[in-house]
């Protein structure tokens, strides 16, 4: 066991404990969107950065291990300025309405959802190219979890990958082929780890759009008639009730 101090509160945790877990053990919290306990941690969202006394750089709580005597601040002015700025930039670029992990933090910092009016928003058409899932990358924060779980963190399917770079990074299939033309086996793992609602069961999506289960019978016939992998014939918006 090692003893550390988090925001003035002393806690004992097993050596090697992630600061993130130690923080949550004290009843505190920091935001995170790329972290998942069962996936490789890349510490790329930087929302969980905390200040460790004596360290020159801020430390990502998701990968930093507790060491004896550490003094951690989860809400110092330096940490809060970075965190608030990151959340603001994220809200400008991405539709965060269904990002359940981030919503409380946006409210806490009073960050308005400014994406609609912001020129620097990432915008994509909804992808509805298969009977199982819809992909709405307007909601994608690029946490990488879907790509990781599709690849070596679980499935070894390699249907989806990261394409482009910088602000224009996107999740893509091989040369953007529709999902049914990719190696995708529709296992659903990617949907299960998506933290923002960018990946969604198509049924769930259609219910949200106001369709009823009876409609799905017709849709099944439509899907069968449409020749995947180009299934562009079906556009849900046209039959909205």
């Amino acid at each position: 066991m090692v003893r550390i101090r988090i925001d003035g509160q002393e806690v004992s945790v097993p050596a090697g404990t992630r600061l993130l877990d130690a923080i949550r053990q004290t009843g505190g919290d920091v935001p995170t969107v790329c972290y998942h306990p069962h996936l490789t941690a890349n510490a790329l969202c930087r929302l969980c950065l905390v200040e460790v006394e004596g360290w020159s750089r801020l430390a990502p709580a998701c990968v930093t291990q507790a060491q004896e005597g550490m003094v951690v601040h989860t809400a110092s002015p330096r940490v809060e300025r970075v965190r608030r700025t990151l959340l603001t930039m994220l809200a400008d670029a991405v539709d965060l309405h269904e990002a359940a992990d981030l919503q409380p933090w946006l409210q806490r910092y009073g960050i308005a959802e400014t994406r609609e009016e912001h020129a620097g928003a990432r915008r994509f058409p909804l992808i509805d190219d298969n009977p199982m899932y819809v992909r709405d990358y307007n909601k994608c924060v690029l946490c990488w979890k879907c790509v990781q779980i599709c690849a070596t963190d679980a499935q070894y399917t390699f249907a989806i990958t990261l394409a482009g770079r910088g602000f224009d990074t996107r999740i893509a299939t091989f040369y953007e082929v529709p999902l049914p033309g990719s190696p995708c086996v529709f296992c659903g793992q990617c949907v299960s780890v998506c933290p923002t609602g960018a990946l969604k069961s198509r049924r769930e999506y259609l219910l949200e759009q106001g369709y009823t289960p009876e409609d799905f019978v017709h849709f099944a016939a439509w899907d069968a008639a449409a020749v995947h992998p180009t299934a562009t014939a079906f556009r849900p918006g046209e039959r909205r009730k």
Partner: peptide, 21 residues
Amino acid sequence: FMEESCGKCFPCQLGTRQQYD
């Protein structure tokens, strides 16, 4: 910087774009 950011971490991926805008 906007064009050369790799896009991995959020501060640079979003920040280089915002700086330019």
